[in-house]
Structures are given as structure tokens and as C-alpha cells.
């Protein structure tokens, strides 16, 4: 018996729907977790990471 025989007989048409549900549940979990109270201060700090470099600014003002 080949793998294709097993797969064809396994009634996998529901497989994709199961995967879809798993992904929707994972998505909902991320939504709930991300928007749970108490995390705002951390995320505000993370959002400022691009501004934490101490490089000199660009050569200012374009020559017009």
C-alpha cells in the first residue's frame, strides 16, 4: 500500500478546515494577549527603540 492510498482513504478533506480553525484560534490568542491590560508601558518603550541611537543627525537643510 502506497502513501497515496493511505492519504486518499484517510478522509482528509476536513484537514484544511482544521488547520484554518487552529490558525484562527492562534490569531485570537495573540489579539487577547497583545491587548491585555498592563503591557502598555512596555510596548511604548519598545516603540521608542528606533530613537535610542546616539548618532549625530544628518547634515541638515537641503541646499536650495
Amino acid at each position: 500500500m502506497k502513501l497515496a492510498d493511505v492519504m486518499s482513504g484517510a478522509g482528509l478533506s476536513i484537514y484544511a478546515v482544521v488547520a484554518l480553525l487552529l490558525f484562527v484560534i492562534a490569531f485570537l490568542a495573540i489579539v487577547v494577549r497583545t491587548y491585555a491590560p498592563g503591557s502598555t508601558a512596555r510596548y511604548d518603550a519598545d516603540a521608542r527603540i528606533p530613537f535610542s541611537d546616539d548618532e549625530p543627525g544628518p547634515a541638515s537643510r537641503a541646499r536650495e
Binding site: A26, I30, V31, T34
Partner: peptide, 26 residues
Amino acid sequence: YFMPKAADKPVFSYKLSILHFWTIVF
């Protein structure tokens, strides 16, 4: 990265960016 830098303001919602990321990947 570049939009907050150019606007000199952090991204509007970091939480939304997390959601954006995982949803796109999923």
C-alpha cells in the same frame, strides 16, 4: 523603521504592529 524616523514620532500603535505581523505570517 523609516516612517517613525522620518516623522520623528514612534509608530502609532506598537500593539497593532504585533498583531499586523502575526496575522500577515499566519
